[in-house]
Simulated scan of single mutants.
Amino acid sequence: MAVDEAGRVRVVPSVYSLHPEDQTVEDMLQGWRNQQLSRNLQFATIDQRLRYVRRFSEYVNEFPWRWTPLLVEEYFGDLRSVRHLSHSTIRAHQAALRLFTSYISSPDYGWDLECERLFGQHPAQVFFDWNTATHVQEYEGGPSKRPFTHGELQRLFDHADTEVERIAKAGVRGWQAAYRDATMLKVAYSYGLRFNELRHLQLVDFARNPHAAEFGKYGVCKVRFGKARRASPPKPRAVLTVFRWTPDVIRDWLANGRGSRDTLDVFPSERGSLVTEPTLLRRLRRYCQALDFPAGLDLHSLRRSYATHLLEDGWDPLFVQAQMGHEHASTTGIYTFVSSDFRTSTLRQALNRTTREALEGRT
Protein backbone atom coordinates (compact mmCIF):
# COMPACT_ATOMS: atom_id res chain seq x y z
CA MET A 1 0.00 0.00 0.00
CA ALA A 2 1.18 3.53 -0.78
CA VAL A 3 -0.21 7.02 -1.27
CA ASP A 4 -0.11 9.25 -4.32
CA GLU A 5 0.80 12.93 -4.49
CA ALA A 6 -2.73 13.97 -3.48
CA GLY A 7 -2.79 11.74 -0.38
CA ARG A 8 -5.08 9.01 -1.78
CA VAL A 9 -4.53 5.32 -1.01
CA ARG A 10 -2.87 3.32 -3.77
CA VAL A 11 -2.80 -0.43 -3.10
CA VAL A 12 0.24 -2.40 -4.27
CA PRO A 13 -0.85 -6.09 -4.09
CA SER A 14 2.63 -7.57 -4.46
CA VAL A 15 3.97 -5.78 -1.36
CA TYR A 16 3.40 -7.43 2.02
CA SER A 17 4.18 -5.66 5.30
CA LEU A 18 5.23 -7.50 8.45
CA HIS A 19 3.68 -4.74 10.55
CA PRO A 20 0.65 -3.49 8.60
CA GLU A 21 -0.63 -1.33 11.48
CA ASP A 22 2.56 0.72 11.82
CA GLN A 23 2.97 0.93 8.05
CA THR A 24 -0.60 2.12 7.60
CA VAL A 25 -0.11 4.89 10.17
CA GLU A 26 3.04 6.08 8.41
CA ASP A 27 1.26 6.00 5.06
CA MET A 28 -1.60 8.02 6.55
CA LEU A 29 0.80 10.65 7.82
CA GLN A 30 2.61 10.77 4.50
CA GLY A 31 -0.68 11.10 2.64
CA TRP A 32 -1.84 13.88 4.97
CA ARG A 33 1.48 15.65 4.46
CA ASN A 34 0.97 15.50 0.70
CA GLN A 35 -2.54 16.89 1.09
CA GLN A 36 -1.25 19.84 3.11
CA LEU A 37 1.58 20.49 0.68
CA SER A 38 -1.01 20.78 -2.09
CA ARG A 39 -2.73 23.48 0.01
CA ASN A 40 0.50 25.51 -0.05
CA LEU A 41 0.93 25.41 3.73
CA GLN A 42 4.34 26.20 5.17
CA PHE A 43 6.65 23.30 5.92
CA ALA A 44 6.98 24.37 9.54
CA THR A 45 3.19 24.30 9.94
CA ILE A 46 2.94 20.85 8.41
CA ASP A 47 5.76 19.42 10.52
CA GLN A 48 4.25 20.83 13.72
CA ARG A 49 0.87 19.28 12.92
CA LEU A 50 2.49 15.90 12.28
CA ARG A 51 4.21 16.11 15.67
CA TYR A 52 0.85 16.82 17.34
CA VAL A 53 -0.62 13.68 15.77
CA ARG A 54 2.33 11.53 16.81
CA ARG A 55 2.18 12.82 20.39
CA PHE A 56 -1.51 12.04 20.66
CA SER A 57 -1.02 8.57 19.17
CA GLU A 58 1.81 7.79 21.58
CA TYR A 59 -0.19 9.00 24.57
CA VAL A 60 -3.38 7.04 23.87
CA ASN A 61 -1.37 4.05 22.57
CA GLU A 62 -4.00 3.30 19.94
CA PHE A 63 -4.01 3.34 16.16
CA PRO A 64 -6.06 6.11 14.50
CA TRP A 65 -8.86 3.78 13.42
CA ARG A 66 -9.39 2.95 17.11
CA TRP A 67 -9.53 6.49 18.45
CA THR A 68 -12.61 7.48 20.43
CA PRO A 69 -13.96 10.73 21.96
CA LEU A 70 -13.09 9.33 25.40
CA LEU A 71 -9.40 9.19 24.45
CA VAL A 72 -9.62 12.78 23.22
CA GLU A 73 -11.03 14.03 26.50
CA GLU A 74 -8.49 12.06 28.56
CA TYR A 75 -5.55 13.43 26.58
CA PHE A 76 -6.57 17.09 26.71
CA GLY A 77 -7.66 16.81 30.30
CA ASP A 78 -4.09 15.81 31.06
CA LEU A 79 -2.65 18.69 29.00
CA ARG A 80 -4.83 21.18 30.87
CA SER A 81 -4.61 19.85 34.43
CA VAL A 82 -1.05 18.48 34.50
CA ARG A 83 0.95 20.34 31.87
CA HIS A 84 -1.08 23.57 32.09
CA LEU A 85 -0.81 24.39 28.39
CA SER A 86 -2.24 27.70 27.22
CA HIS A 87 -5.61 28.07 25.51
CA SER A 88 -4.06 28.80 22.13
CA THR A 89 -1.70 25.79 22.34
CA ILE A 90 -4.55 23.46 23.26
CA ARG A 91 -6.57 24.77 20.35
CA ALA A 92 -3.65 24.29 17.95
CA HIS A 93 -3.33 20.64 19.09
CA GLN A 94 -7.03 20.02 18.60
CA ALA A 95 -7.21 21.77 15.25
CA ALA A 96 -4.38 19.64 13.86
CA LEU A 97 -5.87 16.39 15.14
CA ARG A 98 -9.32 17.30 13.87
CA LEU A 99 -7.92 17.96 10.40
CA PHE A 100 -6.04 14.66 10.44
CA THR A 101 -9.09 12.61 11.44
CA SER A 102 -11.15 14.43 8.81
CA TYR A 103 -8.57 13.36 6.24
CA ILE A 104 -8.39 9.67 7.20
CA SER A 105 -12.17 9.33 7.64
CA SER A 106 -13.02 10.96 4.30
CA PRO A 107 -14.12 8.43 1.64
CA ASP A 108 -12.37 10.58 -0.95
CA TYR A 109 -8.99 9.22 0.15
CA GLY A 110 -9.87 5.55 0.64
CA TRP A 111 -8.55 4.99 4.15
CA ASP A 112 -11.96 3.85 5.39
CA LEU A 113 -12.09 0.93 2.94
CA GLU A 114 -8.43 0.03 3.38
CA CYS A 115 -8.64 -0.07 7.20
CA GLU A 116 -11.86 -2.09 6.98
CA ARG A 117 -10.09 -4.59 4.71
CA LEU A 118 -6.95 -4.88 6.84
CA PHE A 119 -8.22 -4.48 10.40
CA GLY A 120 -11.99 -4.83 10.30
CA GLN A 121 -12.36 -1.22 11.54
CA HIS A 122 -12.48 2.15 9.87
CA PRO A 123 -11.32 5.60 11.09
CA ALA A 124 -13.92 8.12 12.22
CA GLN A 125 -14.02 11.76 13.25
CA VAL A 126 -13.73 11.95 17.04
CA PHE A 127 -13.07 15.69 17.44
CA PHE A 128 -16.31 17.65 17.65
CA ASP A 129 -17.48 21.07 18.81
CA TRP A 130 -18.61 19.59 22.10
CA ASN A 131 -15.19 18.14 23.07
CA THR A 132 -12.77 20.72 21.65
CA ALA A 133 -12.03 24.38 22.34
CA THR A 134 -13.43 27.02 20.00
CA HIS A 135 -11.79 30.21 18.79
CA VAL A 136 -14.19 32.88 20.03
CA GLN A 137 -11.98 35.98 20.25
CA GLU A 138 -9.09 37.42 18.29
CA TYR A 139 -6.62 37.72 21.16
CA GLU A 140 -5.81 34.70 23.30
CA GLY A 141 -2.65 35.85 25.05
CA GLY A 142 -2.26 35.60 28.78
CA PRO A 143 -3.63 38.53 30.80
CA SER A 144 -0.22 39.03 32.45
CA LYS A 145 1.45 39.89 29.13
CA ARG A 146 2.13 43.61 28.83
CA PRO A 147 4.51 46.18 27.34
CA PHE A 148 7.53 47.69 29.07
CA THR A 149 7.12 51.10 30.60
CA HIS A 150 9.52 53.81 29.42
CA GLY A 151 11.47 53.47 32.67
CA GLU A 152 11.69 49.67 32.47
CA LEU A 153 12.84 49.84 28.88
CA GLN A 154 15.61 52.31 29.68
CA ARG A 155 16.78 50.19 32.60
CA LEU A 156 16.76 47.07 30.40
CA PHE A 157 18.86 48.69 27.67
CA ASP A 158 21.29 50.18 30.20
CA HIS A 159 21.69 46.82 31.93
CA ALA A 160 22.30 45.07 28.59
CA ASP A 161 25.05 47.57 27.72
CA THR A 162 26.62 47.19 31.17
CA GLU A 163 26.72 43.41 30.74
CA VAL A 164 28.59 43.77 27.45
CA GLU A 165 31.21 45.95 29.15
CA ARG A 166 31.47 43.60 32.14
CA ILE A 167 32.04 40.51 29.98
CA ALA A 168 34.55 42.33 27.75
CA LYS A 169 36.57 43.58 30.75
CA ALA A 170 36.59 40.10 32.27
CA GLY A 171 38.42 38.86 29.18
CA VAL A 172 36.12 35.89 28.66
CA ARG A 173 34.23 34.76 25.62
CA GLY A 174 30.69 35.93 25.12
CA TRP A 175 30.93 39.70 24.91
CA GLN A 176 30.11 39.66 21.19
CA ALA A 177 27.00 37.51 21.72
CA ALA A 178 25.91 39.80 24.57
CA TYR A 179 26.48 42.82 22.34
CA ARG A 180 24.48 41.21 19.52
CA ASP A 181 21.58 40.39 21.82
CA ALA A 182 21.56 43.89 23.32
CA THR A 183 21.37 45.36 19.83
CA MET A 184 18.63 42.92 18.82
CA LEU A 185 16.51 44.01 21.78
CA LYS A 186 16.91 47.66 20.83
CA VAL A 187 16.18 47.08 17.13
CA ALA A 188 13.13 44.95 17.96
CA TYR A 189 11.72 47.89 19.91
CA SER A 190 12.86 50.49 17.37
CA TYR A 191 10.74 48.97 14.60
CA GLY A 192 8.13 46.96 16.52
CA LEU A 193 9.42 43.69 15.09
CA ARG A 194 8.38 40.13 15.78
CA PHE A 195 11.30 37.84 16.52
CA ASN A 196 11.20 36.05 13.16
CA GLU A 197 11.22 39.41 11.40
CA LEU A 198 14.17 40.52 13.51
CA ARG A 199 16.35 37.43 13.02
CA HIS A 200 16.00 37.55 9.22
CA LEU A 201 17.18 41.15 8.84
CA GLN A 202 19.99 41.62 6.35
CA LEU A 203 22.23 44.54 5.43
CA VAL A 204 20.22 45.16 2.26
CA ASP A 205 17.02 45.63 4.28
CA PHE A 206 17.92 49.16 5.35
CA ALA A 207 17.42 52.12 3.04
CA ARG A 208 17.22 55.89 3.01
CA ASN A 209 14.00 57.75 3.58
CA PRO A 210 14.03 60.86 1.35
CA HIS A 211 11.58 62.54 3.71
CA ALA A 212 13.80 61.93 6.78
CA ALA A 213 17.37 62.51 5.61
CA GLU A 214 18.62 62.81 9.21
CA PHE A 215 18.47 59.01 9.57
CA GLY A 216 20.93 58.47 6.72
CA LYS A 217 20.80 55.05 5.12
CA TYR A 218 18.81 53.67 8.05
CA GLY A 219 15.62 55.63 7.42
CA VAL A 220 13.59 52.58 6.37
CA CYS A 221 13.67 48.97 7.55
CA LYS A 222 12.33 46.51 4.98
CA VAL A 223 10.71 43.56 6.73
CA ARG A 224 10.73 40.58 4.36
CA PHE A 225 9.55 37.89 6.76
CA GLY A 226 6.37 39.45 8.13
CA LYS A 227 3.66 37.25 9.59
CA ALA A 228 2.03 35.31 6.78
CA ARG A 229 -1.62 34.70 6.23
CA ARG A 230 -2.79 31.11 6.10
CA ALA A 231 -1.23 29.18 3.19
CA SER A 232 0.53 32.32 1.94
CA PRO A 233 4.17 33.45 1.81
CA PRO A 234 5.57 35.90 4.39
CA LYS A 235 4.01 39.35 4.18
CA PRO A 236 6.59 42.11 3.53
CA ARG A 237 6.30 45.68 4.73
CA ALA A 238 8.46 48.78 5.11
CA VAL A 239 8.82 50.28 8.59
CA LEU A 240 9.95 53.89 8.86
CA THR A 241 12.57 54.83 11.45
CA VAL A 242 11.06 57.07 14.14
CA PHE A 243 13.65 57.17 16.94
CA ARG A 244 16.72 59.37 16.40
CA TRP A 245 18.98 57.00 18.34
CA THR A 246 18.19 53.93 16.21
CA PRO A 247 20.71 54.55 13.36
CA ASP A 248 23.55 55.00 15.88
CA VAL A 249 22.72 51.67 17.52
CA ILE A 250 22.79 49.85 14.17
CA ARG A 251 25.93 51.59 12.91
CA ASP A 252 27.83 50.87 16.11
CA TRP A 253 26.92 47.18 16.03
CA LEU A 254 27.91 46.78 12.38
CA ALA A 255 31.23 48.53 12.91
CA ASN A 256 32.30 47.20 16.32
CA GLY A 257 30.27 44.08 17.02
CA ARG A 258 29.32 42.23 13.89
CA GLY A 259 32.55 43.14 12.14
CA SER A 260 33.46 41.81 8.72
CA ARG A 261 31.60 38.58 8.04
CA ASP A 262 30.88 36.59 4.93
CA THR A 263 27.11 36.95 5.28
CA LEU A 264 24.44 39.57 4.72
CA ASP A 265 22.72 38.72 8.01
CA VAL A 266 22.69 41.62 10.45
CA PHE A 267 22.63 39.36 13.51
CA PRO A 268 24.49 36.10 12.74
CA SER A 269 25.06 33.61 15.54
CA GLU A 270 28.50 32.48 16.64
CA ARG A 271 28.28 29.64 14.10
CA GLY A 272 27.12 31.87 11.28
CA SER A 273 23.51 30.71 11.30
CA LEU A 274 20.42 32.65 12.35
CA VAL A 275 19.87 33.32 16.05
CA THR A 276 17.19 31.12 17.60
CA GLU A 277 14.37 32.54 19.71
CA PRO A 278 15.29 30.61 22.90
CA THR A 279 18.79 32.14 22.78
CA LEU A 280 17.54 35.72 22.94
CA LEU A 281 14.63 34.85 25.23
CA ARG A 282 16.93 33.28 27.83
CA ARG A 283 19.07 36.41 27.96
CA LEU A 284 16.03 38.68 28.24
CA ARG A 285 14.60 36.58 31.08
CA ARG A 286 17.93 36.70 32.88
CA TYR A 287 18.08 40.48 32.56
CA CYS A 288 14.47 40.89 33.73
CA GLN A 289 15.19 38.76 36.77
CA ALA A 290 18.34 40.73 37.57
CA LEU A 291 16.35 43.96 37.36
CA ASP A 292 13.53 42.47 39.44
CA PHE A 293 10.91 43.19 36.80
CA PRO A 294 7.44 41.74 37.41
CA ALA A 295 6.12 38.82 35.38
CA GLY A 296 4.43 39.37 32.04
CA LEU A 297 7.39 40.72 30.05
CA ASP A 298 8.76 38.77 27.09
CA LEU A 299 10.23 39.37 23.64
CA HIS A 300 6.85 40.29 22.22
CA SER A 301 6.54 42.95 24.91
CA LEU A 302 9.01 45.01 22.88
CA ARG A 303 6.52 45.05 20.01
CA ARG A 304 3.70 45.89 22.41
CA SER A 305 5.82 48.70 23.83
CA TYR A 306 6.51 50.14 20.39
CA ALA A 307 2.81 50.56 19.55
CA THR A 308 1.91 51.77 23.02
CA HIS A 309 4.67 54.37 23.25
CA LEU A 310 4.00 55.79 19.78
CA LEU A 311 0.35 56.31 20.63
CA GLU A 312 1.25 57.84 23.99
CA ASP A 313 3.54 60.28 22.20
CA GLY A 314 0.71 61.39 19.92
CA TRP A 315 1.48 59.50 16.69
CA ASP A 316 -1.49 58.96 14.40
CA PRO A 317 -3.15 55.54 14.98
CA LEU A 318 -3.22 54.87 11.22
CA PHE A 319 0.54 55.43 11.07
CA VAL A 320 1.08 53.01 13.96
CA GLN A 321 -1.17 50.46 12.26
CA ALA A 322 0.89 50.66 9.06
CA GLN A 323 4.16 50.40 10.98
CA MET A 324 2.92 47.28 12.77
CA GLY A 325 1.78 45.69 9.51
CA HIS A 326 -1.83 45.24 10.62
CA GLU A 327 -4.61 45.15 8.07
CA HIS A 328 -7.27 46.12 10.60
CA ALA A 329 -7.15 48.82 13.27
CA SER A 330 -8.77 46.41 15.72
CA THR A 331 -5.66 44.22 15.54
CA THR A 332 -3.45 47.17 16.44
CA GLY A 333 -5.77 47.85 19.34
CA ILE A 334 -4.87 44.45 20.79
CA TYR A 335 -1.21 45.47 20.95
CA THR A 336 -1.74 48.89 22.50
CA PHE A 337 -1.70 49.23 26.25
CA VAL A 338 -1.87 52.96 26.87
CA SER A 339 -0.34 53.70 30.26
CA SER A 340 -2.32 55.02 33.20
CA ASP A 341 -0.52 58.38 33.08
CA PHE A 342 -1.44 58.91 29.44
CA ARG A 343 -5.05 57.88 29.95
CA THR A 344 -5.32 60.12 33.03
CA SER A 345 -3.92 63.15 31.24
CA THR A 346 -6.18 62.53 28.23
CA LEU A 347 -9.20 62.24 30.50
CA ARG A 348 -8.20 65.39 32.37
CA GLN A 349 -7.88 67.37 29.14
CA ALA A 350 -11.30 66.18 27.98
CA LEU A 351 -12.90 67.08 31.32
CA ASN A 352 -11.25 70.49 31.36
CA ARG A 353 -12.44 71.14 27.82
CA THR A 354 -15.98 70.12 28.73
CA THR A 355 -15.95 72.38 31.79
CA ARG A 356 -14.56 75.30 29.80
CA GLU A 357 -17.19 74.90 27.09
CA ALA A 358 -19.94 74.73 29.72
CA LEU A 359 -18.72 77.95 31.38
CA GLU A 360 -18.42 79.77 28.09
CA GLY A 361 -21.93 78.71 27.17
CA ARG A 362 -23.25 79.93 30.50
CA THR A 363 -21.79 83.41 30.01
Rank of each mutant, 00 (worst) to 15 (best):
R244S: 10
E73T: 11
Q121W: 13
Q202I: 12
S144A: 02
F337H: 12
R362W: 14
A238F: 00
H87K: 09
L311E: 06
H200D: 15
E5R: 12
D47H: 01
F195C: 10
L284Y: 13
Q121P: 07
S190Y: 06
Q23T: 07
R348Q: 15
S340E: 10
P64F: 14
F63Q: 15
E270M: 08
T355K: 09
T363P: 09
A231N: 14
A6T: 14
E114L: 15
D161S: 07
P64C: 07
A307Y: 06
L311V: 11
F267A: 03
K227W: 02
Q35G: 01
E312G: 12
E74K: 14
V12F: 09
L284E: 05
R10D: 01
E165C: 00
S269D: 05
L297D: 07
A329P: 02
C288Y: 09
G141S: 01
V239D: 02
E214N: 14
G296L: 08
V223Q: 09
Y139W: 15
L274H: 05
F43D: 11
T246R: 05
A124S: 10
R49Q: 14
S144P: 03
L85I: 10
T263Q: 11
N256F: 13
A95V: 08
T45L: 06
S38E: 02
Q154L: 08
G31P: 09
E5L: 10
H328Y: 03
L274D: 05
A95M: 10
P236Y: 05
F63C: 11
M1V: 11
T162V: 02
S14V: 08
K169L: 04
L113T: 09
L113C: 12
V11M: 04
L153C: 07
L318S: 03
R39P: 01
R356V: 12
L118T: 04
Y75T: 06
L311C: 06
D108E: 14
V320P: 10
A358H: 06
V220K: 15
T149C: 04
R230E: 07
D78W: 09
V11W: 00
Q125H: 01
A212Q: 15
E360V: 13
R237W: 01
M184T: 08
F127G: 05
R66I: 06
D265N: 08
H326S: 12
P20T: 06
D292C: 04
E360T: 12
H200A: 05
S105I: 02
I250Y: 00
D248N: 01
H326L: 04
P69H: 11
S232M: 08
